[in-house]
Design a binder for these strands. Sequence first.
DNA 1: GGGTATTTGTCCGTATGTATT
DNA 2: AAATACATACGGACAAATACC
Lengths: 270, 270
Amino acid sequence: MAEPMYRQIAEDLQRRIESGDLEQGAQLPTEIDLREQYEASRNTVRDAIKWLTTRGLVETRPGQGTFVVEKIHPYVTTLTGKADIGGGDESVYIAEVEASHRKSDISEPRVEIQRADGVIARSLRLDAGAQVVARHQQRFIDGTPWSLQTSFYPMSLVQQGAIALIQATDIVQGTVAYLAEACDIHQTGYRDTIAVRPPDENEVRFFKLPADGRVPVFEIYRVAFDKTGKRLRLTVTVYPSDRNRLRVDVGEVPPRRIQRLPDTPEPDHD
Amino acid sequence: MAEPMYRQIAEDLQRRIESGDLEQGAQLPTEIDLREQYEASRNTVRDAIKWLTTRGLVETRPGQGTFVVEKIHPYVTTLTGKADIGGGDESVYIAEVEASHRKSDISEPRVEIQRADGVIARSLRLDAGAQVVARHQQRFIDGTPWSLQTSFYPMSLVQQGAIALIQATDIVQGTVAYLAEACDIHQTGYRDTIAVRPPDENEVRFFKLPADGRVPVFEIYRVAFDKTGKRLRLTVTVYPSDRNRLRVDVGEVPPRRIQRLPDTPEPDHD
DNA sequence: GGGTATTTGTCCGTATGTATT
DNA sequence: AAATACATACGGACAAATACC
């Protein structure tokens, strides 16, 4: 027996899905039915379904059944923007999203003062234990959860006059513009580092991801610099990877076409 | 009992891992031992281990045991380069990697002529069924598999003199430089779209990923343009997400520090 | 709202196969 | 070859979620 039985069942079902025999959103036969069709035990059938689930082909709903997953038309977030007018801050994202006929909301920030732990301190080149301002925000598109974001600012910025950073109010013009106004600090660039990892419990709840952690999240670390190379801010943004794509434009790139409505069958890397 | 038993067991083990009680690389008690420790059946213990496995905390090795996964020091790939001197092509990657004291190898390309299917045709703005050259390559760092890459070129480029595209030989100066030499076609920019998905069977084999598909891969679609906005190429690159990070630099960014050796405990988004 | 049928989720025990040491 | 440890497969029982009447 080269191939275990549950794999054979899974691959047969996969074939039926990819051939269109089972359409998107269609319900699979129940575990009892599959047990009879494949002459296997229910647990073996369940192993096959679990295999398909891990690969994102089907999803199970307790009390209802097993269904072929429907492809999600992804949101596209462009990471390359004007380095000096935002780059990851509130205002830019809103402009992006509204341009594609979608409505973006952002929560009021939850503000904390905390000691910079290892990663934050190193990213901002602070001594371990230095004070930082953490601003947590939730972002929605058309009412559905889109991203979780936390920005860390050295407390020294507040001492230089950027007192709005420690107020639990959205900075509508964007913190980049605000820092320029409030204390003549000008962001001239940023560096993003993109990783992928399983979601934690908070993220599972907020994004309504499957509890088994099979849908990973993008985690983007953005370190912003001024013209002397000083580190102004670390922003950590988390996106669920199943409904998001990231875009990077380099050099001369033609303007994007208007983003289509969710049901049109176009490639999402257009 | 709000929490199922296997979750309680999993969370207890997770706590023991994150507290350092079980160190990286350490072997967990065997399933039989855990069955006795938690007074559960072996199947329930196995469900707990599967839960930890999906989250990348442990791995099982048949005949050996279950082990706490060791963190991998990731490779960092910068997506933003000079738009006109490569940007994702062979030579640039090699320079990047060698600068961090690692040795990069690339396979000779496997070249195919094929009809552009839906996604490729749309990305290159070709009519469906138009001929394209596909060049598949495998990339290694220090001998370990790093990325799989396929570039698609419109056949019209070959007719304009870029005959090396249809030869199964690496284009050492990079195809961007080659196209400039051979037929005066100059790339001026590119656009990347980053997605994450489970690996297919080829990728599992090549990258030696776990067969259950729990480690996703980055898939980067790069469309390159000339100054008129014409689409010169589509390059699809796949990286395993467990050992890779992507970097995007925008605006003025200070030079990177030398990349450290794998065993130093620095953040990988430095 | 309540009750019932359906469907998946959890948990058990057991047996046998396969990979590794 | 033997021992160990995980992988596969079976069958059964009950719980929990959902849909429907």
